[in-house]
Amino acid sequence: MNQGLLSVTSAFSRVWLRNAQVYLTLWKFNIFPALAEPILFIFVFGIGIGSYIDQMEGVPYLEFVAPGILGIAAIMQATFECTYGSYFRMRMQNTFEGIISTPVSAAEVGMAEIAWGATRGLVTSTLVLVILAFLGVFHNPSVLLLPVITLLAAFNFAAIAIIVTSRIAQMEYFHFYFAGFVLPAQFLCGTFFPISRFPEPVQVIAWIIPLTSFVDIMRSLTLARITPSLIPETVWALGSTIILTELAVRSMQRRLVE
């Protein structure tokens, strides 16, 4: 039997549609709370702390942190959806078991959950993007490419979350994941200041976490600064997403079909 990503057919979209259908009936509960954190970041860092910082890397602070706030909005939404959300569907509601008793495979369920987490990340980060645009942060047409990057960043973190979700025996392990990885990633990845401030070993760790590449790519789009470092960053952003998705899909397969 084919395994992993190669075995995934378009049947995964049927599960994605199920999630979308549920989301739309509850959209009020889903959209506004998700915007609270990014809006808080805009006020606290961009406008609050930002008023004490003249410039960072030659631009007003809010313009510097805007890609960081966008990246965080995308990955946090995807992470919540594919940790607690997916775990709830898998373990508490047994929804996945019902689904894989049909022609839809476990790998397709994994793929659908990742795609759905990515979709939610895209929705939230796009709303944040609109708010930032109203604040006059963007000056270059290249910002129109930002949703592509936030979608990919959300996809990447959704895949990491599914790897965790499909491996843990109880929900409490998510505490370690959030404290040990998600929270540090939010602040270590060049979101609020350049990672060149860190000692070398920490910089290496930051570059391994794909969010650093995503934020840097977004920053070069918002500031219209094209540098050679974009090439390895893009390769790592895309490559890690594919590798992580493959691992996540296989992991879900192992979890659901013993």
């Binding site: 047994n94 022609p103 839809v104």
Partner: peptide, 24 residues
């Protein structure tokens, strides 16, 4: 299955319709 695994996020009829979609 032994334990009911209906989709609690969907109504009775939607449960059947969404399940039908899994079969294409």
């Amino acid at each position: 299955p032994q334990d009911n695994n209906l989709d609690p996020d969907l109504s009775t009829c939607r449960n059947l319709e969404v399940y039908a979609r899994y079969f294409g």
